[in-house]
Nucleic acid binder design. Structure first.
Length: 602
DNA sequence: GCAAGGTC
């Protein structure tokens, strides 16, 4: 018997379809498995649910008050089965016992490699003789899958080592600092409450708190601008000078010189606004937060459900290029019977060309709709979340249609009038062609046209004003902006970024209100303490530094043990720095905890 | 009870 192990059920299903054509769905220990005939031999494809194993400390070490947190630096976490995946472990064992060959068809990334290794460990325990192969495919398509199985390879141990090293490092750092800050204030915490540190979650907090402190420390400064109502060829145009004057006096002196002038430039230039590129996870989350008012965690949860119900493709992806194997016309055909059917029809009639991003994770497709749905059926499936689920489904459909639509065309307009020393400007625009905005209203722009004038036309100021303004603090951090910054700094992955934000919410470090991230007193106190005494723990670049070191395991063959030793040594220094200031940190955190408690009561 | 990463 041939056993095929995939990372998730949908891939196991696809493999059975592509290699066998006909298949039979079975339940092994409660887990779906697809039985089929592969070149005259019996084959079974089993889908897992991500990792089978994890790392943990010993039972004694897991009693937080029994050992000082720093003791964890000196010990090595043990590899253990994940209790949540026991049924997959049992199913794998059952099937592996009878297998002659095992094909590890996990995703083609480092996590997939590690999961493949975990599966191989289990196979070996029950079946020392089975031949074990690793197959790699860059997309779940007939061609890629068939090819992969024709060219089986072996597990890349360096990739496995990278992942296992990351697991140990993250657990150790997380546990040490989590316990330290929790134990420092344990008498001020509610039952079951704890404070946490993590190399992804904490830099996220740092980014949000830094912005909040910039806002609080911001000193607004007054400045003055000159505005004028200018008459050109019978048209009256609001114009302003692109100069900030420090004092009213300077501005008034400049304003006094404005009287008669001449058009220096008049530009009316067509400008294409391109439709968005195919949708990936983080962009879905950003746009849902900004335009639909749904936070990133909720968005991914709903997208997951829409995927499981067959309405959209796999929602965890970094790919922004439709592969040639995806039949876009077929998708349009399906959508033709849906709520935007006439637009889909129109695209098919007129022809279309998809936009194309620059990212391909070589494992998943962009997010696109897979079925035409009605509001009613989504409502039935989602209950209380129906309005949000429909909003996200509708968004995915519109985004998909937009990527096949023509650009919008806007005429950008600019008039510059020279009044001797000072120049006045006006900008406007005229929508020439709505293009993809017809089905993508969130990016729609309106016309604010300027009249047609020509360089050399005489101009006359009808009215001149000096307006007092104030410089403004940076805006509150939006969740959308935060996600973009996390991506820029390499904090988390497409599938986990929203988790790291949400962890900060769960810990009471920040709130998300109307798409804005607002740190609490507790969040500010924790971040400020870390910035003061161990900034290396909270800088936005922490994660990327660790990630880079981990990558050297794969690229240079750096021994994991050495890397773990070095990282621990470095973070032990930060730990000492924090411990030396324990009393100050304790006081800052307790003040914040008490103030939030009082404000809750009040 | 700690993390981050898969996945449901």
């Amino acid at each position: 018997m041939i056993l095929i192990v995939a990372e998730k059920r949908s891939v196991a299903h696809a493999i059975a379809k592509f290699l066998g054509g006909r298949y039979k769905l079975e339940k092994i220990q409660g887990v779906a498995a697809y039985r089929f005939n592969y070149g005259g031999r019996e084959a079974v494809a089993l889908g897992l649910s991500g990792h089978l194993m994890d790392f943990d400390f010993t039972a004694r070490q897991n009693v937080w008050t029994w050992i000082p947190p720093e003791e964890l630096f000196a010990s090595q976490p043990l590899i253990v089965y994940r209790p949540e995946t026991m049924k997959y472990i049992r199913a794998l064992r059952t099937l592996a016992a009878r297998a002659h060959e095992v094909y590890l068809a996990l995703d083609a990334d480092v996590e997939g490699e590690a999961i493949a290794y975990e599966a191989a460990l289990l196979v070996r325990l029950v079946n020392p003789r089975a031949k074990i192969y690793r197959v790699r495919f860059n997309a779940v398509t007939q061609r890629e899958i068939t090819n992969a199985f024709r060219n089986p390879t072996h597990i890349n141990l360096r990739m496995v080592e990278k992942v296992f090293t990351r697991m140990q490092v993250d657990l150790t750092l997380g546990a040490v600092f989590t316990r330290f800050i929790t134990l420092a204030v344990r008498h001020s915490l509610d039952r079951g409450q704890f404070l946490s540190y993590g190399p992804c979650q904490t830099p996220v907090l740092g980014i949000v708190v830094t912005r909040e402190l910039q806002r609080r420390n911001f000193k607004p400064e007054k400045y003055y601008v000159v505005k004028a109502l200018v008459e050109i060829g019978g048209h009256r145009i609001e114009m302003s000078a692109d100069v900030r004057f420090k004092t009213r006096k300077e501005a008034e002196e400049a304003a006094a010189t404005i009287n008669r002038g001449v058009v220096k430039a008049a530009v009316y230039r067509p400008h294409h606004v391109n439709p968005p590129v195919p949708l990936e996870t983080v962009e879905l989350e950003r746009r849902a937060s900004r335009w639909l008012g749904i936070n990133s965690k909720r968005t991914l949860d709903i997208a997951e459900e829409l995927y499981r119900a067959g309405y959209i493709s796999y929602p965890r992806t970094e790919t922004t290029i439709y592969p040639p194997t995806l039949d876009l016309r077929e998708v349009l055909q399906e959508l033709a019977s849906g709520h935007l059917g006439s637009y889909a029809d129109e695209l098919m009639r007129r022809g279309f060309r998809p936009t194309r991003g620059d990212s391909d994770d070589r494992a998943h497709l962009p997010i696109y709709p897979t079925r035409a749905a009605t509001k009613g059926e989504v409502a039935k499936a989602f209950g209380k979340l129906a309005p949000q689920a429909w909003a996200i489904y509708d968004f995915v459909v519109r985004h998909f249609l937009a990527t096949l639509s023509p650009p919008a065309v806007v005429e950008k307009q600019k008039i510059i009038v020279s009044f001797g020393k000072l120049e006045m400007e006006a900008e406007g625009q005229l929508v020439v062609d709505e293009g993809y905005w017809r089905i993508y209203p969130w990016e729609r722009q309106s016309s604010k046209p300027l009249p047609r004038v020509s360089p050399g036309d005489p101009a006359r100021a009808v009215k001149v004003d000096v307006v007092e303004r104030e410089t403004e603090p940076p805006p509150q951090m939006t969740e959308s902006e935060l996600l973009a910054l996390m991506k820029k700094y390499g904090i988390g992955t497409d599938a986990t970024m929203q988790d790291h934000i949400h962890t900060n919410v769960r810990r009471g470090y920040m709130k998300i209100t109307k798409g804005k991230c607002i740190p609490t007193d507790l969040g500010i106190a924790l971040a400020t303490s870390l910035f003061q005494f161990a900034p290396q723990l909270i800088e936005p670049t922490v994660r990327a530094k660790i990630e880079k070191a981990l990558n050297s395991i794969v690229t240079d063959g750096t021994p994991p043990a050495r890397l773990i030793y070095e990282i621990k040594k470095e973070f032990e220094e930060y730990y000492k720095a924090l411990k030396a200031r324990k009393e100050e940190i304790k006081k800052a955190l307790e003040t914040a905890l008490n103030s939030s408690r009082n404000s809750q009561r009040g």
